[in-house]
Design a protein around this nucleic acid. Structure first.
Lengths: 340, 340
DNA sequence: GGAAACTAGGAATCCGTTTTCCTTACGGTA
DNA sequence: TACCGTAAGGAAAACGGATTCCTAGTTTCC
């Protein structure tokens, strides 16, 4: 029984193909000058043995680790998880492995992880976080791309969701349905996801002839606040009274779901009386809501994928600078159109 | 500008401490014979420079990569994510890094990831999945621990949630509140999470003098099915009629939340008329439900942590065999007690 | 038949830590 | 005083397998 059984080395491939290890290397990497027949023979031998070049040894010559770090400060992972998965997905295509490092919102822990990634000589790092608020950059001697949570340094490469585009799409959708008087309900007022979406909605409505009714409402990111906010919007409205709005735009699906529940409790029909929209396209909220929510899918997996692409380019010597916007997708459901 | 700036090598520490690299190694690893004063001086120098031994070089001598693979077949990550995070957390303590490999329920992709992990010479692999149903083992030349989804081979080391203990705790809780006639609503009938929980509930109730009313109801893991199942349990019950049950045990918080909504719609008070329990302690469901759900927290982070401990022991030459049960925790909220 | 072009093998290279082996110095004992 | 044992620390090899020069052998074309 050989030690580390099952591990195929380049010499094993060389033996099976009847050539030297260096020939195998050239055949598999499309370098040197070899007869096509030899190349094919080596390829077939490698295929048959399931040969995968040893990453450690490879990194010796290449002076690269073929590894990138995924540094996440979001332990819960509701937002960073899709980003991380999207990035990981894009990386495996390039024979790159992903080292996971979760710091659960703790600066000391994050510093520890950063040092660990540096010790592993990762080729680059993707940093992601809990919110779209800017975060302090990390100091490392390799390329970094910030995903979802941009760096505070505008010269760093960041990829963030294009919330303005999402809100503009929602506004256009509502106006196309004839809705004009729109209320906005945000989450925490100190977060960009609340304030930026409000500003974008206000601008989009104004430009197209809609009206943003009342001041924006900020609270917390919970269904409970969604319900409370509906009471604030409706005031002492009684069934039959004219409604102060014909649409409510919530800054998250969770808020919107709570809002729908409260509207129904108070006898307001969704969407006949008031159209409702959410944000995030979080299936367990958007689909379980009654009615299901028209919302915006920020396509975080694509965002993570894009971050990985930028990182790979940076590793190959072509670094990006500045913040790139990742496009969202409008998802229309019954809470605005009443279908189904 | 030195190349790879910021990277501190053992020679840098040696220079600062005025000793040779080998002395630094001995001082930091507590080997060889050195004067305590020398040891302390080296330690201080390493501390000051923030020296972290190069993992690649380290693995050369140690013939270990100090890396483990986290192989997940669950892309959505609702269940595997806490497991992965718990495991990763336990690993960083041991200076071990975690390579993330997500296979999104695709055998070809999984095989690809397995080969990649083998190529990286990981010291071990933690395999996790979407359900608690047993899965085929992977064939690799290093230790493996299966977390959440056990291996089909009973000789492999697996850690799974102790659903029977969770259901027993729920049954005892309900009986202590005077509930006797209990209905059970499961998710998909072909999954262990549905059937095993049903069997455990039936056994626990029978042993303690409760009654499981009617056949178990199986459907899908959605709020919608939770609502439908309530209709099946209540039949053509009208407000005022005697109720066929005084408690409904749902196999997930999602089901239970839907169930609560439907019960309220039909004028049945929770928990005064019917107590309701969920499973999973998924906060966005259990806390947002009206009323908040009494449920069972499977403590998946602890499960992942335990899997990591077992893996580290196996790497150190002390492998475990068989399936270990990870204990859950009963979480009591208003859906049974009516507080709040 | 000879020279150029091509093919493939041998051996050195890549990296920083660990570990083995050895030297030096010092103290104790004969 | 000479010799030996031991502590302390340095020098150099080992660790690992893919890659890449460099060179020798082989084919091909004129």
């Amino acid at each position: 029984m050989a030690e580390t059984p099952g591990v195929v080395r380049i010499t094993d491939v060389a033996a099976l193909a009847g050539v030297s290890p260096s020939t195998v290397s050239k055949a598999l990497n499309d370098t040197g000058s070899l007869r096509p027949a030899t190349r094919a023979r080596v390829r077939e031998a490698a295929e048959r043995l399931g040969f995968v070049p040893d990453a450690q040894a490879r990194s010796l010559s290449a002076r690269r680790s073929f590894t990138v770090g995924l540094l996440s400060t979001d332990s819960a992972g509701r937002f960073s998880l899709p980003v991380v998965l999207g990035a990981e997905n894009a990386l495996v295509g390039g024979q790159i492995s992903a080292l996971l490092a979760t710091a659960r919102h703790d600066a000391v822990r994050e510093q520890h992880h950063v040092r660990s990634l540096v010790a592993r000589r990762v080729d680059g790092i993707i940093v992601t976080g809990r919110t779209t608020d800017a975060r302090p950059p990390i100091q490392v001697p390799m390329p970094v791309v910030y995903a979802f949570s941009p760096s505070q340094d505008p010269r760093d490469a960041s990829v963030v969701p294009d919330d303005a585009a999402g809100m503009t799409a929602l506004a256009a959708h509502l106006l196309s349905l004839g809705r004009r008087r729109v209320a906005y309900v945000g989450g925490r007022g100190d977060q960009a996801a609340s304030t930026l979406r409000h500003a974008a909605l206000a601008a989009a409505l104004e430009e197209r002839g809609g009206t943003l009714v009342g001041e924006p409402l900020f609270g917390e990111w919970s269904e409970r606040w969604g319900r409370l906010a509906v009471d604030l919007v409706l005031g002492d409205h009684a069934p039959g009274d004219p409604l102060p709005v014909d649409a409510v735009v919530f800054a998250s699906d969770q808020l919107a779901r709570g809002g729908c529940d409260r509207l129904r409790d108070r006898g307001v029909r969704v969407p006949q009386d008031v159209a409702v929209t959410g944000y995030d396209d979080w299936d367990v909220m958007a689909l379980a809501s009654r009615p299901p929510l028209t919302t915006v899918d920020p396509q975080l997996d694509r965002l993570g994928q894009r971050a990985a692409e930028l990182l790979l380019a940076a590793i190959d010597g072509d670094p990006a600078h500045g913040t790139e916007l990742s496009p969202p997708r409008l998802v229309v459901r019954a809470s605005t159109t009443g279908d189904a």
